[in-house]
Amino acid sequence: MDDAIDATDFDDILVPTDGSKSAREGAKQAIRFAKRNGATLHVLYAMDMGDADYVAVPSDIAQTRNRLEKKGQTFVAEIEDLATDADVPCVTTVVSNTPVEAIREYVDENDIDLVVMGKRGRSDPDKPLIGSITNRVVGSLDVPVFTA
């Protein structure tokens, strides 16, 4: 029996991004998949507010949230521009959650067929094979995950 994945089964492809070079490479591959298969590209950035826990003043938390949201909007817009140039339909989302949880929830809530992501992101650029977030995503999803 042939267990190969039929790429034509992918109607909705998710690209999580952290703005890293690896994430952009994953996005380029996802755009190629989407173009070939007439799929919609979904681009997701997760604002991990856990880093803001040390902030004691609520106004500082709001400023941190705004800064992270602007950064996320910039990252998803970069990939949206690539998708638009390739004439691939694209949906962008910025959420407040940890990256792994955000990816899991987005996959479940949006019937994602394939996740395409970089092997490693900003927090672990020197790792030789696969980053910690990518590793956890690969191990926690029931849909195929392609790493670039």
Results as ranks from 00 to 15, higher is better:
136 R>I: 05
83 A>Y: 07
139 G>L: 11
49 M>Q: 03
113 D>Y: 10
146 F>I: 02
53 D>M: 09
65 R>W: 00
9 D>Y: 06
59 S>C: 01
38 G>Y: 10
125 P>H: 09
103 I>Q: 01
133 I>T: 15
86 A>M: 07
61 I>A: 12
113 D>V: 11
17 T>W: 02
107 V>A: 10
67 R>F: 05
138 V>K: 06
66 N>E: 14
13 I>T: 06
131 G>V: 11
126 D>W: 12
51 D>K: 11
51 D>A: 13
61 I>S: 04
89 P>W: 08
117 M>L: 08
92 T>L: 04
16 P>R: 04
12 D>K: 10
21 K>Q: 10
66 N>R: 12
105 E>N: 11
69 E>K: 13
94 V>F: 01
29 Q>K: 11
108 D>M: 06
16 P>I: 02
77 A>V: 01
2 D>E: 09
111 D>P: 07
127 K>D: 14
143 V>E: 13
81 D>W: 04
136 R>C: 07
34 A>I: 05
42 H>C: 10
105 E>Q: 12
28 K>N: 08
29 Q>R: 12
139 G>C: 04
75 F>A: 05
127 K>F: 14
42 H>L: 10
81 D>K: 15
24 R>Q: 09
35 K>A: 13
12 D>Q: 14
9 D>F: 03
97 N>F: 00
114 L>W: 06
113 D>M: 12
3 D>T: 07
131 G>C: 12
148 A>V: 10
89 P>V: 05
76 V>A: 05
131 G>I: 08
95 V>R: 04
98 T>W: 00
145 V>D: 05
59 S>G: 01
138 V>H: 08
138 V>F: 09
75 F>Q: 08
10 F>C: 13
39 A>P: 10
42 H>S: 12
30 A>K: 01
56 A>S: 13
3 D>Y: 14
50 G>V: 00
48 D>A: 03
32 R>F: 00
85 D>K: 12
43 V>I: 07
30 A>I: 06
117 M>R: 04
55 V>Y: 11
103 I>K: 02
114 L>G: 10
2 D>N: 13
145 V>N: 05
101 E>G: 03
122 R>E: 13
62 A>V: 08
116 V>W: 02
51 D>Y: 14
135 N>S: 15
52 A>K: 05
5 I>H: 05
107 V>Q: 04
58 P>Y: 04
33 F>C: 09
140 S>P: 02
77 A>E: 15
78 E>Y: 02
69 E>N: 11
62 A>I: 07
95 V>I: 03
12 D>E: 15
124 D>P: 04
5 I>L: 15
123 S>A: 14
59 S>W: 05
30 A>T: 03
112 I>L: 12
22 S>Y: 04
18 D>C: 09
5 I>A: 12
15 V>H: 03
135 N>Q: 15
49 M>S: 11
109 E>P: 01
1 M>H: 09
3 D>N: 08
41 L>Q: 11
148 A>W: 01
84 T>D: 15
82 L>Q: 14
88 V>G: 05
94 V>I: 03
12 D>L: 00
62 A>C: 00
32 R>D: 14
86 A>N: 07
43 V>T: 13
16 P>T: 00
114 L>Y: 05
57 V>A: 14
112 I>H: 13
120 R>L: 01
137 V>T: 09
11 D>N: 15
